[in-house]
């Protein structure tokens, strides 16, 4: 899923500015699963903003809503009858949400309440980790099913570098050296020879480096 973290409240309050009536719009997709932008978090943010503004003597009227997804026009459409009622709309979806909203409702201002961070999964309840960098050319099968692009701090394809110590990355003892895991896995499997294969420079054109990307499935396009 796409993982995000809520922005500091100070930043959100600054975005809201002098608005008197806002809509906080959650998303029932990824951000609900990673507990940052679903119904629940919309409620918490709404209450928090109301408290903060009440404290300043500038009460804020807040409406709460969550769309099935903010990355599909048909769902974004669902607020067309109410969007004009608000001074501002705060989206709690990933970075896609406020953009789809801005594109659909050109005259309105949409603010992101979360910082979109990475593609990952929950390694345990409450902890998410990055797993994919969306490079557009998956080769994890060469690396024991572990992605060095997303998970090595230097994205080495011929690692590990000299900074690997006790299974940890040189940047922090809290970061696993993915190359340590790759090497150990290959050694256990008796496939060290696979790591002796020179991995040539990666073709980054399929990644963000090739410019904004688009997927077209002709059979679906009308």
């Amino acid at each position: 899923m796409i993982v995000a973290d809520r922005k500091p409240l100070k930043e959100i309050l600054e975005m809201v500015g002098d608005s008197k009536k806002v809509l906080i719009l959650g998303c029932k997709g990824c951000v609900t699963v990673c507990n940052v932008g679903g119904n629940k978090e919309v409620g918490i943010l709404a209450s928090t903003l109301k408290i903060a503004r009440a404290k300043e003597g500038r009460p804020l009227e807040v409406e709460e809503k969550a769309l099935e997804r903010q990355c599909d026009p048909e769902y974004v459409d669902q607020i067309k009858d109410i969007v004009e009622d608000y001074d501002a709309v705060i989206s709690m979806a990933c970075g896609v949400g406020p953009q789809f909203l801005s594109e659909r409702y050109p005259g309105k201002r949409f603010f992101p309440a979360v910082n979109t961070t990475f593609f990952g999964g929950a390694v345990q309840h409450g902890i998410w980790e990055e797993r994919c960098a969306g490079c557009g050319a998956c080769g994890i099968h060469h690396f024991g099913g572990l992605c060095p692009i997303a998970r090595c701090s230097k994205s080495l394809l011929n690692g590990p570098c000299g900074g690997s110590a006790d299974g940890k990355c040189e940047i922090s003892k809290d970061v696993v050296c993915i190359w340590d895991l790759i090497v150990k896995k290959k050694m256990e499997e008796g496939h060290l020879d696979e790591l002796m294969i020179f991995r040539p420079p990666k073709v980054w054109t399929t990644a963000r480096d090739g410019g904004p990307r688009k997927s077209v499935r002709e059979e679906l396009v009308q």
């Binding site: 500091p8 409240l9 100070k10 309050l13 918490i44 928090t48 408290i51 903060a52 404290k55």
Partner: peptide, 8 residues
């Protein structure tokens, strides 16, 4: 934490 962030 939330309260501290908003100055309460």
């Amino acid at each position: 934490n939330v309260l501290e962030e908003i100055g309460i």
